Computed example of a mutant assay.
Amino acid sequence: MDFTEFTRLRAAQEQPPTLSAAEVSGPDRTLVYGYTSDRSTWHVYLRAGEVHLTVYNGVSGTVKRYEARTVWNVAELVPDKRVYPESVDGEFASLLLDRGQRLPYKNFDENRHRNVAGLDFHGVTYDAATGVLDHHGSKRS
C-alpha cells in the first residue's frame, strides 16, 4: 500500500466501533440492564427509533445520566460493573460482540429470568421532556 492508503486505513482503524439504532430490529425493549460500580442502575433500551441510556439511583429515582441517540460508540453502552444476563437482548449482545465489545455478565439466575421474561422493559425509562421516570412492567404481546 502507498502512504495515502496507509493513512486512510490507520485513521479508520483508530475510530471507535459504533452501533446504529437502525441495526436493532424488533419492538421497543430493554437491550442491556445492569449497574455501575457506584451501584447506579444502568438501562439501555430501544424506543422510538433511538437507543436510550438512562443511569439512575434505583432507590431515590434520581437520574444521573440520560442520552438518546441513533448512533452510539459501543463502549458507551456498557456499564463499568455488571449486567444481568436475563435482561440483555441476545441480538443486541451479538451486535456488540461483533464490534469487539464484551458485556460484564453476572451469573445467570433462573428465578430472575422467570420474573422478567416477556417484559418489554426491565427497568424504568425516562422522558426528558417531562423529567418523569416511567416504571414499566408490561408483557410483550
Results as ranks from 00 to 15, higher is better:
residue 1 M to A: 13
residue 2 D to G: 14
residue 2 D to Q: 10
residue 3 F to N: 06
residue 6 F to V: 01
residue 6 F to D: 00
residue 6 F to R: 06
residue 6 F to G: 00
residue 7 T to W: 13
residue 7 T to F: 09
residue 8 R to D: 00
residue 11 A to Y: 05
residue 13 Q to N: 14
residue 17 P to D: 07
residue 19 L to I: 08
residue 21 A to K: 10
residue 22 A to T: 10
residue 23 E to N: 02
residue 24 V to E: 00
residue 24 V to D: 00
residue 24 V to S: 03
residue 25 S to L: 07
residue 26 G to R: 10
residue 26 G to D: 04
residue 27 P to Y: 10
residue 31 L to T: 02
residue 31 L to H: 04
residue 33 Y to K: 06
residue 35 Y to W: 12
residue 36 T to L: 12
residue 40 S to K: 12
residue 42 W to V: 02
residue 44 V to L: 04
residue 46 L to V: 00
residue 47 R to D: 02
residue 52 H to P: 03
residue 52 H to V: 01
residue 55 V to H: 03
residue 55 V to M: 02
residue 56 Y to V: 07
residue 58 G to C: 02
residue 60 S to H: 13
residue 61 G to S: 07
residue 62 T to F: 14
residue 63 V to Q: 09
residue 63 V to K: 10
residue 64 K to Y: 15
residue 64 K to N: 14
residue 65 R to D: 03
residue 66 Y to C: 00
residue 66 Y to V: 00
residue 68 A to R: 15
residue 68 A to P: 13
residue 68 A to V: 11
residue 69 R to I: 07
residue 72 W to A: 01
residue 74 V to K: 06
residue 76 E to V: 01
residue 77 L to G: 02
residue 78 V to Y: 08
residue 78 V to E: 02
residue 79 P to L: 08
residue 79 P to C: 12
residue 82 R to S: 08
residue 82 R to I: 04
residue 84 Y to S: 04
residue 87 S to Y: 05
residue 88 V to K: 09
residue 91 E to L: 06
residue 94 S to I: 00
residue 94 S to K: 13
residue 94 S to D: 12
residue 95 L to V: 08
residue 95 L to E: 06
residue 95 L to P: 07
residue 97 L to I: 05
residue 102 R to H: 11
residue 103 L to Q: 05
residue 105 Y to I: 10
residue 107 N to Y: 14
residue 110 E to W: 07
residue 110 E to V: 05
residue 111 N to R: 12
residue 112 R to Y: 06
residue 112 R to Q: 00
residue 115 N to G: 02
residue 116 V to K: 07
residue 116 V to M: 03
residue 117 A to P: 05
residue 118 G to T: 08
residue 119 L to N: 05
residue 120 D to W: 14
residue 120 D to N: 12
residue 123 G to K: 13
residue 124 V to L: 03
residue 125 T to Y: 12
residue 127 D to P: 01
residue 130 T to G: 02
residue 134 D to R: 12
residue 134 D to Q: 08
residue 134 D to E: 06
residue 136 H to W: 13
residue 136 H to K: 13
residue 137 G to I: 10
residue 137 G to R: 15
residue 139 K to R: 07
residue 139 K to L: 03
